[in-house]
Design a protein around this nucleic acid. Sequence first.
DNA 1: AACGCATCCAACCGCGGCTCT
DNA 2: TAGAGCCGCGGTTGGATGCGT
Length: 203
Amino acid sequence: MGRSPCCSKVGLRRGPWSEKEDALLTDYINRNGEGQWRSLPKNAGLLRCGKSCRLRWMNYLRPGIKRGNIGEDEEDLIVHLHGLLGNRWSLIAGRLPGRTDNEIKNYWNTHIVKKLQSSGIHLRPHSGFPRPPLPPPAKEPPQVKRSKKRQRKSPPEKEDDEQGPPRTVVHRPKPIRISAPAPSLPRLNSWDSYPSVGSSDAD
DNA sequence: AACGCATCCAACCGCGGCTCT
DNA sequence: TAGAGCCGCGGTTGGATGCGT
């Protein structure tokens, strides 16, 4: 079936996005809207594949994106939803306004898995979760307010002139973790969603 | 102060599903 | 109905940063 060979095309940039590329992509989408990812890079003047553009937009440039600072309430919600949906990160993300599937997936793999395991909760393989008929997603409309793009310590902006090696240096800022939970998210006993081996009332 | 290890996250890759012709 | 193409998703990887020795 239709595999998109776009990312394997030679001549396309890969690796970290520069400020200029972000600006091009944002400007283009603001003017023309999302979609047509395959033709978007060409129309926007980007030497990227459509997939890369889409990923960048969805995970970073899209208005309303929240970065880092996943609070306990959000974490509980993720755990709860994961218990219901399994590794349906996009569905989980759809119920967490401002969060992306990639971020949730990363957070799950780095933080929550450890926490669950240390609590004596054995995670089954993702496929082990039953897949219930998917409830209609909350359909968070993309907020219009522009989220400040993550500031890089040393933005790789000077690569405008395509001199770049395939994998350039990624400068990323330290994520700022705040403990203030999202105000509107109810506290859940999400850990109970998991079939516990010992005690499901971990915290 | 330097080195090595562990952690974390941005981005890539490949596949499946949906839509159009 | 079948084939082709695109989009979206989930898993994995690469590499920077932080921390401990």
